[in-house]
Simulated assay, not measured.
Amino acid sequence: MKIIQAILDDEATEAEKDHFRENMDKCIPCIESYRLEKCIKDSLNNKIVKKPCPESILNTIISKINS
């Protein structure tokens, strides 16, 4: 699951991606988990409306980080 999550989050190394691709067809639970996780992630990305953070909130956050 760690490698599947890393791949879906685009954080996997090339070696991890290659290993997953080579072994994915041999592991039915891996294939099903990958497809399910990808479907969930894609659905969430399509449903989320991305809005910019208001500048007043951004300034408050920055001032709290700096203090």
Rank of each mutant, 00 (worst) to 15 (best):
M1G: 15
M1R: 14
M1E: 15
K2A: 06
I3F: 01
Q5K: 12
Q5T: 02
A6V: 02
L8W: 02
L8H: 02
D10N: 13
E11H: 08
A12S: 04
T13E: 07
A15S: 13
E16N: 01
D18H: 03
H19C: 07
F20D: 01
F20Y: 05
R21V: 13
E22D: 07
N23L: 12
N23T: 13
M24L: 13
D25L: 10
C27M: 11
C27D: 15
C27W: 15
C27E: 15
I28T: 04
I28Y: 12
P29D: 07
P29Y: 14
I31H: 04
S33L: 10
S33V: 00
L36H: 03
I40G: 06
D42R: 07
S43F: 09
S43Q: 12
N45K: 13
N45C: 08
N46I: 10
N46P: 03
K47S: 10
K47F: 10
K47Y: 11
I48Y: 11
I48R: 09
K50Y: 15
C53Y: 12
E55Y: 09
S56K: 14
I57A: 08
I57C: 09
L58W: 11
N59I: 00
I61S: 04
I61T: 04
I62S: 05
K64H: 03
K64C: 00
